[in-house]
Simulated scan of single mutants.
Amino acid sequence: MKRNFMDRVIDSIEWLAAIFVGLVAADIFISVVLRKVFNTSIPDSYDFGRLLLGILIFWGIAATSYRGTHITVDLVWSSVGPRMKRAIDIFATLVLMFVVTVQTAMLFDKVRGTWNDNVLTYDLNIPTWPFFAIAWAGDVCAVVLIGIRTWRLIFQPELLSSKPETQANE
Rank of each mutant, 00 (worst) to 15 (best):
H70F: 14
I61E: 01
N39E: 11
T114N: 12
W151P: 00
N169D: 12
Y122I: 14
R50E: 14
V24A: 09
A25E: 06
I126G: 04
T128H: 02
T72E: 07
V37R: 02
W129S: 09
I13N: 09
R8M: 06
D117G: 08
N4R: 05
D89I: 13
T121G: 09
G68I: 01
M97V: 09
T128R: 06
S41Y: 04
N118T: 04
V119N: 08
I19D: 00
I42K: 00
F38L: 08
T93C: 11
S41W: 01
F132W: 12
I10P: 01
V95L: 13
L159W: 11
G138H: 02
A63D: 04
G49Y: 14
N125R: 12
I19Y: 00
S79E: 04
D139F: 13
I146Q: 04
I13F: 09
A133I: 10
D74L: 07
R83K: 15
G81M: 05
W115I: 10
F48K: 03
L153N: 00
W115H: 12
D11P: 02
L159Q: 04
F48R: 01
V80M: 03
E170A: 12
A105W: 12
G60W: 03
I71Y: 05
Y46M: 05
K2C: 12
M106T: 14
L56M: 11
M84F: 08
I61P: 12
I146N: 02
D123H: 09
P130E: 02
F29A: 15
Y66M: 11
V143G: 01
T101W: 03
V143Q: 01
F5M: 11
I126K: 04
F91S: 06
F58Q: 05
N118P: 05
V143E: 00
T150C: 06
D89Y: 11
I90G: 07
L94A: 13
F29H: 05
R86S: 13
I148V: 15
T64L: 15
P157R: 03
E158L: 07
I71H: 02
L56K: 03
F38M: 08
F98G: 15
F98P: 07
L34K: 01
V102S: 00
T72N: 10
E14I: 08
P164N: 01
H70Y: 14
R112N: 14
Q156N: 14
I10V: 00
N39G: 12
I10K: 02
T72I: 13
G60H: 04
G49E: 09
A142G: 11
Q167R: 12
T64D: 08
L53I: 11
I61L: 13
I146E: 03
A17L: 10
R149E: 11
R149D: 03
I30Q: 06
D123C: 06
A17T: 09
R67I: 09
L51C: 06
R152P: 00
F5L: 15
N116W: 03
V100M: 07
G81A: 09
R50T: 10
I71Q: 03
Q167D: 07
V99N: 02
R8I: 07
T93G: 05
A62D: 12
G49W: 15
P43K: 07
S45V: 15
A105T: 15
S41D: 05
G49K: 09
L34D: 02
S45A: 11
S78D: 14
L120D: 07
F91L: 13
T101C: 07
F5Y: 10
N4M: 04
A133F: 15
F131D: 02
I154Q: 01
L145W: 01
L124R: 09
P82L: 15
I13Q: 04
S65C: 10
